[in-house]
Design a protein around this nucleic acid. Structure first.
Length: 572
RNA sequence: GCGCCCGUAGCUCAGCGGAUAGAGCAGGGGACUUCUAAUCCCAAGGCCGCAGGUUCGAAUCCUGCCGGGCGCACCA
């Protein structure tokens, strides 16, 4: 099913025999054939034999007859491999009969915790949350589809000193009024108003401080007010997730408050393990390898000098709970790159404490900032951060207008639905289609140009396929003979068969731009095929075969886009 | 000062040890009586930041510079 793997498996024993030890055949796609193996070149020095001779010896031993039409030594010692039409057809047919499109469910499922999104109660979600939410959701979707047990952890910022002022502001407004404001999604003005009073009014500051103490002390009234804030915010966040087509639900909120009781035990445990050191009144752990500005070891402060706990303590408590109680073996943190050092230190301390021991491992899936078209951090006209919902609304309205213009036959309801899928898809795809380590330039024109390597391009290819089947009035026959005579058919067949390879790679690296790039290549191949190879007007048995290729393309596109969290409308 | 990320076509990006460096956009030229032209085809466009080094072979690995961004003890 997976061509690279198939060829690798065939070539590896031959290389091993020739080299007298295991060798990776280094199989990859080639411009001169379907695939090439480059291992003979690297082996030449070690074996003291000319690379061409090694390649020839390998070809002599390798069993490729049922797979390759041509297997030959080329240039200085490359092995060029051309898959036979019969073998390619077999692989396509196998794909057609496989609901999982060649991607098997994992044999040994893991429990994976994906930590993502993480908005703050009573604070607007801004573009900074976009990448974490979009990338994290793709991680969760992909790993779940592969059969892992995925725990979505939405690390909600629902605890800490700001809640004193927020609750006091709520009291000032009156509960009904405050709930109204928050449920309208006007979190920004609520927060700003509280902040302004805090900064300006000494009395308010005092009340706020006392309120924090009451909150932490478990005062019933305070807790009730606090829950009101949290609930209203959660409700609002869920509407954003719904708009974004994100799989996070009410059950996935893991508020920082829920670790509150675990913080002191975490510090105690670190102390018991002899890892704790006091420095300037704070309880610290000094993980190996971390150095600060002055070259001195850098501490992870697990308890501040005022006795309070910050992020490090919460992250450690959460980590311990995840590997311990939950039994997770893979911890994924989808958080911006600036936090890299923080996570290095947290993971370092967790390892020292024995909370993060093989097979469990943690990875920081970091990403760059979102920049405006001017190449600087995205800001609103007023200079503040851009509201996420405003950005999404603009994407949807632009895409809806475009949809109306392009396809006047759609009624208003369907145009709105399509506009939403296209607009949201465009935003998410733009985020996922480039290497996440880079800063990501959010250019309205480009993102919504609906052309090039964009979600709409892929969605359009999908809708073309659906259109064919609406006209055909029947599904493709899975056992239809696979047509490969036309170059466009062959090229498309190859892309289809490569789905599993890409999914496996992305599962390992969590670099979704590889999947996006693959889907774009697939859509491009399909569009070229569509252009040159009429489906419905073709004679049998070619017609059935082309229907099969079209259907498979549709299934792979839908599955691939679904893994990215992007919808595939039937019509555009 | 130290650390991390990033410098590839005018723009946005792939490629990260192999044969002539690839896409898309923008700009140029073509293709709709044909399953949606939101498409396709053709041409053009590059001292792969700079300089050394390793290698049969470097955009890719190493070192040093230059440029941009971010981080560097009690904010989350």
């Amino acid at each position: 099913m997976d061509c690279e793997k198939l060829l690798t498996d065939r070539l590896a024993p031959a290389f091993a025999a020739v080299a007298g030890g295991p060798v990776d055949p280094v199989v990859r796609r080639s411009q001169r054939a379907d695939f090439q193996s480059d291992a003979a070149l690297a082996l030449a020095r070690r074996l003291g034999r000319p690379p061409r001779e090694i390649a020839a010896a390998v070809l002599d031993r390798a069993e490729l007859g049922d797979l390759c039409a041509v297997a030959e030594v080329s240039g200085p010692g490359f092995v060029n491999l051309t898959i036979s039409d019969a073998a390619l057809a077999r692989m396509v047919t196998a794909l057609a009969g496989d609901p999982r499109l060649g991607v098997p469910a994992v044999a040994g499922p893991e429990t994976v915790v994906v930590d993502y999104s993480a908005p703050n109660v009573a604070k607007e979600m801004h573009v900074g949350h976009l990448r974490s939410t979009v990338i994290g959701d793709a991680v969760a979707r992909l790993l779940a589809w592969r059969g892992h047990r995925v725990v979505r952890a939405n690390h909600l910022g629902d605890w800490g000193t700001p809640f004193g002022m927020l609750i006091e502001h709520l009291v000032d407004l009156g509960e009904a009024e405050a709930a109204e404001e928050l449920s309208m999604g006007d979190l920004d003005s609520f927060y700003r108003a509280a902040r302004a009073k805090f900064d300006a009014d000494e009395g308010f500051r005092d009340r706020s401080r006392r309120r924090v103490v009451a909150l932490q002390g478990g005062d019933a009234t305070t807790l009730r007010l606090w829950r009101l804030l949290v609930q209203q915010s959660e409700r609002y966040f869920l509407t954003v997730y719904d708009l974004l087509d994100v799989t996070l639900t009410a059950r996935d909120f893991r508020g920082e408050s829920s670790y509150h009781q675990l913080l002191a035990p975490v510090v105690d445990e670190l102390d018991r393990l002899g890892l704790l050191r006091e420095s300037a009144g704070a309880a610290c752990v000094f993980p190996p390898g971390s150095v600060g500005r002055d070259g001195a070891p850098l501490p992870l402060i697990v308890r501040k000098s005022d006795g309070g706990y910050g992020y490090p303590a919460t992250d450690l408590a959460a980590l311990r709970q995840r590997t311990g109680e939950l039994g997770a073996t893979r911890l994924v943190y989808v958080v911006g790159l600036p936090q890299r050092r923080h996570f290095e230190m947290v993971f370092g301390v967790a390892r020292q404490a024995g909370w993060l021991a093989p097979p469990a491992r943690a990875e920081h899936v970091g990403f760059g900032s979102i920049l405006g078209a001017d190449g600087r951090m995205l800001r609103s006209r007023a200079g503040g951060s851009v509201k996420l919902v405003a950005l999404l609304a603009e994407a949807v309205s632009r895409a809806t207008a475009l949809t109306r213009e392009r396809n006047p036959e759609l009624d208003a309801a369907e145009a709105a639905e399509v506009g939403r899928a296209v607009g949201i898809g465009a935003v998410k795809y733009a985020d996922l289609a480039s290497d996440r380590h880079r800063d990501h330039v959010l250019d309205w024109e480009r993102m919504l140009s609906l052309d090039g390597n964009t979600a709409p391009y892929l969605q359009y290819a999908y809708s073309r396929i659906r259109s064919i089947f609406r006209r055909a009035g029947a599904a493709a026959r899975p056992e239809a003979p696979v047509p490969l005579a036309e170059p466009a058919e062959r090229a498309l067949a190859f892309e289809l068969v490569g789905f599993a390879t890409v999914v496996a790679e992305v599962e390992r690296t969590l670099e979704f731009h590889h999947l996006a790039g693959y889907l774009h290549r697939l859509a491009t191949s399909f569009n070229a095929f569509y252009e040159r190879c009429p489906v419905l007007r073709a004679e049998q048995p070619v017609r059935d075969g082309r229907l099969l290729l079209a259907e498979l393309t549709g299934r792979v596109l839908r599955q691939g886009l679904d893994l990215l969290g992007i919808r595939t409308p039937e019509r555009m």
